[in-house]
Design a protein around this nucleic acid. Sequence first.
DNA 1: CCTTGACCTTCCAATAATGGGAAGGTCCAT
DNA 2: ATGGACCTTCCCATTATTGGAAGGTCAAGG
Lengths: 153, 153
Amino acid sequence: MNIGEASKASGVSAKMIRYYEQIGLIRAVGRTESGYRIYSTTDVETLRFIRRARDLGFSVEEMGTLLALWQDKQRESGDVKRVAMQHVVAIEKRIHELEGMARTLRHLAGHCHGDDRPDCPILDDLAAIAAVEKPAARRPALKGRHRGDIAPA
Amino acid sequence: MNIGEASKASGVSAKMIRYYEQIGLIRAVGRTESGYRIYSTTDVETLRFIRRARDLGFSVEEMGTLLALWQDKQRESGDVKRVAMQHVVAIEKRIHELEGMARTLRHLAGHCHGDDRPDCPILDDLAAIAAVEKPAARRPALKGRHRGDIAPA
DNA sequence: CCTTGACCTTCCAATAATGGGAAGGTCCAT
DNA sequence: ATGGACCTTCCCATTATTGGAAGGTCAAGG
């Protein structure tokens, strides 16, 4: 089947399939005489694996590791579990950070009239001459373009 | 004071201060004859405001909105509260997504021996021929380069 | 006065994962 | 043969941030 069909069957866009091939996450598949990529059901299974891992927030790099382990019938399940748990820890760290932000904002908003008066504790807090703290790691905003977020350092 | 001092006083890197100026988040400050940027304490307060907002996960765009509201003494606190709460909702949505991922992974890991045996439910799940679901919005991984994450569409 | 090191300036590149689109070739059904 | 739906490659944009190169400036010490 061609890339469009493989895309539909796997849930990974054709753009991303080409990208994954380009960066070496998946092997370069065969081509027709006219240059069209040809995918086998095995290839589609791999893509589906990627799709699922991506939905669980694994980065491309982690997916590479998982794919290698998946294809290595001799791997030790401990290796897989380790990768998974590292990811869980990263996710949970991220959750805690976000919870802190949400908590603070909800607290501030709770003290804001939220009406036509200009007085606003939220802005007052943002403007507060507070001590500069730990820089903390920053990640992109959720402008919607990506999917899983969270990856190990 | 020059950009290095303003950076230390605000907790925003010199690189980012220049960037924020470039994209118009902050006004272009004055320069010395030799071209060095000069910052006033007011400028530093603005930078600190930005720093704080950034730590609460606001995107540059949202920071622009908040800054405008902050500097508009006539603003209605309701406008500020709205921006803040929209952000909270986005954060909480993200938290739920991450919790779902963590829950699934913890569950799978719980069924994985995690020893030297090759048998692994985690990989089995990833490879499962599951129905392709909702594509869901994807965001970058937390490779550490950024800070707040979460912004409205 | 000159050197040196710490700063400053601008410009360009890379990051992660994805979408958008252009220019051009292909395939298949009318 | 024509058209529309696909395919191909290539380049660009996105977000927030850091890194580095090349070159100018400043202040302190000699």
